[in-house]
Design a protein around this nucleic acid. Sequence first.
DNA 1: CTAAACTCGGACCAGAACGGTCGCACATCG
DNA 2: CGATGTGCGACCGTTCTGGTCCGAGTTTAG
Lengths: 131, 131
Amino acid sequence: MIRLSRKSDYGLVALKALSGLAPDDALSARELSLQQGLPVDLTPKVLARLAQAGLVESSMGKAGGYKLAREARSISIAEVVRVLDGEPSLAPCREGILECGRIDTCDIKHPLENLHREVMDVLSRMSIAQL
Amino acid sequence: MIRLSRKSDYGLVALKALSGLAPDDALSARELSLQQGLPVDLTPKVLARLAQAGLVESSMGKAGGYKLAREARSISIAEVVRVLDGEPSLAPCREGILECGRIDTCDIKHPLENLHREVMDVLSRMSIAQL
DNA sequence: CTAAACTCGGACCAGAACGGTCGCACATCG
DNA sequence: CGATGTGCGACCGTTCTGGTCCGAGTTTAG
């Protein structure tokens, strides 16, 4: 299907929003979701996930919120997708379900890996700052 | 998630197998699925879909089967994916569900479209013959 | 000290997508 | 005519995933 999940989509939107903040400012999940039109109950989850991956920093308590932990320029789309959707894989060649006939002669696996790497390259080259 | 569905995966494997055939030879769905380790009941479906899209030709009746309709070199992975999974889209920005705040200033849409185009480029450049 | 506003994390649910199966009609060849 | 194949639509069970809810811990304001 070659598509990114809604979670990743939301994550990108959120990071983009945070990247527009003043250096020492923070934005609460609620504010962010309202201003960006994201589901109010889902946004905290996405942000928490990004926080524990070290992409954003969170401050607790009243007047708390989120802000970017690193420069927007250094956060690649590939990284965001990896955090929110797990390690992306092009082909589900997993476990011996179909064994690919014989593993060593599975003549489709290696080319697909190349393809996958190329796609990941594209995603890695683009950062939040470029959105 | 950036992954292709199993259907597409099977389709690629099948096409790759057909590409190794002698010019006027045909392979039945059953034979193909057995020799490639694909689900016996699902393979005919995938091949039928590819047939009605004009990627393979089918001959009915006993001793019937499938063969490539065009040169392996001219069948891109993007085309196969499009046929089996429908038009791939990167972001589910569809219908006004989240309206992206204001459509014209949706500052994330256009960059994502670029990203999408780049990914599709990669898929379009690679053909069955290269698998 | 208390209350409010916020993050954090897990549990939970409903709906859609997907892989897979079955059954029947039609075509071809021996 | 019968065996073998394709073609196509209906159907089912499982998994994924978007989305909601709730309780707990934390910080600031009054």
